[in-house]
Design a protein around this nucleic acid. Structure first.
Lengths: 193, 193
DNA sequence: GCAGGGTGTCGAAATATTAGACAAAAAGAA
DNA sequence: TTCTTTTTGTCTAATATTTCGACACCCTGC
């Protein structure tokens, strides 16, 4: 109930229906006609989910446009969950959409209740996987730090630890010394040099 | 050309055809009738890819068995790439399979060349994402270690660093001492206690 | 064989750490 | 506020560690 949703569908009637349905389920629901309008929306990067129709331009029914936009939307940093919706979907398009990172794929006509459920699930899944990717980046950083630590002198490592423990003790040197397992005076000596 | 492939299909003719086709493309190709036979294969965890048919038991055409096995195979540590193949696939099953972690979804009849291409691509993609997930796990571990380091005694931190530097020096104590910025004898003393 | 580098060990001088003590400052509780 | 507890800064003397130079020994490669 606290999520922001963006609906992208070229059919005005569908947009209106979806917005009416989903307005009660999300904190904020915006509906636009074409993905290229995203740039014109203030705060466009803050959506939790996008409900993306595959068929803009009534002529192009092969979903190429939709897949193109899906890919662009998913290549942004911290992309929102994207649920694709289409009337002309076949297995191949569905698989392509999922491979491009869509969280779900729905065919029209849709079931209201399941649509809401799928949107929420998509948001949850997206949050988890996004978290995974950030974790991967963090791992790379930590590993880098770990490997750089190898080049450090014993004194440097000592002083780093001393400083972080003092920090974690809020500057209380007595407590820090105790936690470090050294005499208080030793800690003083270490800080003096 | 250096990958191990497992084919799971209940149709003996399909198994034979696939094996014939793929034998030249992979280092090792095994074909079994039922996923539950995996346990009986020596070194069953070492496959790079599995080509998984969705319909065992001719009666059950709703793919539930296939999805079940897909999920089980994908929940193993370091799972192989899995390409699902089915004659009865519809959009819903395809989306479910992709959500369960399949790398691709193919419908029979298949195109030989594209099948090989998809298998190879699946292996490559799987390797990448597996790396990401392992990185996530590593990150959790490293972060845990990082936060626990605060509780360590100065001597413990010293010894950890000493040991990892000695490790990185391949056991050469002189070099390790130099890198640690301490006298060689000091390093000996540290190791003695 | 032998030169070069690593290892294990020693002694003695230089340094660092420790426990204990004390006064002053700071922080908390009544 | 006053009283109490804790922390700080500093000192001394005993103890422990580190350092340096040196020596014999064992490998490894030339």
């Amino acid at each position: 109930m606290n999520e922001k949703l963006l609906i992208i569908d070229d059919n005005a009637a569908v947009r209106a229906t979806l917005k009416l349905l989903l307005n009660d389920e999300f904190k904020e629901v915006t509906a636009i006609e074409n993905p290229s309008m995203i740039a014109t929306i203030p705060n466009s990067g803050s959506y939790d989910a996008i409900l993306l129709d595959m068929n803009f331009d009534s002529g192009a029914l092969d979903c190429r446009d939709g897949l193109f936009w899906l890919e662009r939307l998913k290549s942004l940093p911290s992309p929102p969950a994207i649920v694709v919706i289409t009337a002309f979907g076949d297995v191949e398009v569905a698989v392509k959409a999922m491979k491009l990172g869509a969280e779900d794929f729905i065919t029209k006509p849709w079931d209201n209740e399941r649509l809401i459920e799928k949107l929420n699930k998509a948001i949850a899944v997206n949050r988890r996987t996004r978290h995974d990717k950030e974790a991967a980046r963090r791992a790379a950083r930590l590993e880098e730090a770990e490997s750089q630590r190898l080049g450090l002198t014993l004194d440097e490592v000592k002083m780093r630890h001393v400083r972080s423990v003092i920090d974690s003790c809020g500057g209380n040197l007595s407590a820090a010394a105790q936690q470090l397992g050294v005499n208080r005076q030793t800690l003083y000596n270490l800080l003096r040099k």
